[in-house]
């Protein structure tokens, strides 16, 4: 059975791109979220195997969403998606419980490596 993924990003472009990379590699995209609040709600509803999380999102940022999700499920596997120059935020997200990160612009191979590390 393929792993299920929840993709959280406020940009449709990024969601589409991440979705394509992952579904072509055989993962099943079970949901998308545009805001941190939505990400937490959809996580509770879908219990995906993996969450990809943008750091900067409207209403609740990615880091707070990580905290909420980990509170709900300490075993949640979250992969942060960040831009260059957000080191401090990524470190904070990882300390909050995210398992790994990828840096934009995304290279499919790097994204898949990171996903495998997190799921492995």
């Amino acid at each position: 059975m393929s792993h299920t993924v929840l993709v959280c990003d406020d940009a449709i472009f990024m969601r589409t791109m991440i979705g394509d990379i992952l579904s072509q590699a055989g993962y099943e995209i079970v949901g998308e979220a545009e805001t941190g609040v939505q990400a937490v709600e959809k996580f509770k509803q879908l219990s995906p195997d993996l969450v990809t999380m943008d750091i900067v999102m409207p209403d609740m940022g990615g880091i707070d969403a990580v905290r909420e999700i980990i509170k709900h499920d300490p075993g949640a596997r979250i992969l942060m998606c960040s831009a260059m120059g957000q080191q401090a935020l990524v470190v904070e997200a990882i300390q909050a419980g995210a398992k790994d990160f990828v840096v934009k612009p995304f290279q499919p191979s790097r994204v898949l490596e990171a996903v495998q590390r997190v799921l492995g």
Partner: peptide, 13 residues
């Protein structure tokens, strides 16, 4: 590699 500090945080995690 990119964000060596974040990678270090991953290791500690």
């Amino acid at each position: 590699s990119t964000l060596v500090g974040a990678r270090a945080a991953v290791v500690i995690g």
